[in-house]
Design a protein around this nucleic acid. Structure first.
Lengths: 229, 229
DNA sequence: GCATGAATTTACGTATGCATTAATAAATGC
DNA sequence: GCATTTATTAATGCATACGTAAATTCATGC
């Protein structure tokens, strides 16, 4: 039996899709800085394609709220102000709490919640090792998994959208924020509530967790004068 | 003084934007039927433009969840299944309740809530006159105004998105649904709670209102075998 | 008659060209 | 000098062209 080259036969992406992913990653990485303008033709040259796929990618990224098409000024990478941040956290809170309640109501058994438990463990290990990037990755994974468990694809899509909008800011603040000790405790409590099928506790605990995260983020932005990340 | 032709100097829309609006309206009107496929070139011919603005509009509508671009099969107008409907109502509920709480917390005075009151009155008049289209318009306006009062632009945008996805279904069910008597009472209660600054009551009442609306819609879809509106 | 493979059609993805018009620079008047 | 107008530049919005690959039709063999 010949070795499988591709277990999950991935169909080749179009240039538009590649441009979408590339530009998105460049935004996340800050390579395309918040508030900066970029001509379609410049981006096209950078990615080695024509303007067409760049425009299509930009249109999609605009719908995702990551940039803005400004005729004759190029695409503007949208900065996230503290007010934006507050908005986003409020929406994230609702979407995640909805998911937490739904997940609790589904009566998941332990194996169903495996990914959630794994994310929590990974976070704890990461904190012990003082590995913040690892922690951030696992934290992101926890929240993503939680929302997935809620089983509402539209809520998930919107969660991803909002989450992407704060990705850059979270990267920036990761190393100036306090150590996420309390955060890990919260996660475990949410996990337990879901396992017990206790929707209202899951909601309440997670809501408080998110409220804290929001306040912390807003404090950081204010203290460090980060008015548009 | 010459009469103002244009009080709100509206800049001319691009063909892409017009195509976006046209296609969206055609979807709402059922002119582009749920589940149907349409070649880019056909749509282009219909709207009298080239494929480029059609593609751009389609990309935007795809992000809005109204259609799907399927290579070589044309754009597919997405039907809304009962499961989809449940998802959408759940998300709408969260977004509107968030807005209701926020609105209540803002301590609005009566003039601030004028648009909300107007929508309620219009709904009551419409019900008295048995004018369902008028009622539907005012009901939509009430919910939209409520969300606006919440002051979260992202929540508003997502609300609009979800709302658009159920527009067509609501039109279909408008004349087979029970008369919206109880609905109007709910609205008034939400209004009162917001005026009193009572966030948790506003949330609770509106949540129940939305839950009823969801159940009613799902019942209608089931009873009338509307498996993909 | 059915399956298999070849030929054909066709819709899309993308590059390209161009008219339009906003933005910028230059020129003119005061 | 400064404001105002004109000329220039250049980025966009859009039409168009075309190669590619999927879908379909047709032909062939069994």
């Amino acid at each position: 039996m010949s070795p499988k080259v591709d277990t999950h036969p991935t169909k080749p992406l179009s240039n538009s899709q590649r441009a979408f992913l590339s530009l998105r990653d460049m935004i996340f990485a800050g390579e395309l800085a918040p508030g900066s303008d970029h001509l379609e033709s410049e981006l096209a040259k950078q990615l080695g394609v024509s303007r067409t796929p760049i425009r299509e990618a930009a249109l999609m990224l605009e719908s995702q709220g990551l940039l803005e098409l400004r005729p004759r000024k190029g695409v503007r990478i949208l900065p996230v102000s503290p007010d934006d941040m507050a908005e986003i956290y409020d929406v994230l809170t609702e979407l995640e709490c909805l998911a937490a309640r739904n997940a609790a109501d589904k009566g998941f058994s332990e194996p169903d919640l495996h990914l959630l438990a794994k994310a929590i463990e990974d976070m704890e290990v990461a904190v012990d090792q003082n590995n913040l990037e690892e922690w951030a990755e696992a934290d992101d994974r926890f929240h993503h998994t939680l929302v997935s468990l809620g089983g509402n694809s539209r809520a998930s899509a919107m969660f991803d959208m909002m989450n992407d909008q704060v990705r850059r800011a979270r990267t920036v603040t990761l190393f100036i924020r306090p150590l996420p000790i309390k955060s890990n405790e919260d996660h475990r409590q949410v996990y337990e509530a879901i396992k017990l099928g206790d929707a209202s506790t899951a909601d309440a605990v997670h809501r408080a967790h998110r409220q804290n995260a929001k306040n912390m983020m807003l404090d950081l932005l204010q203290k460090h004068r980060l008015r548009g990340v």
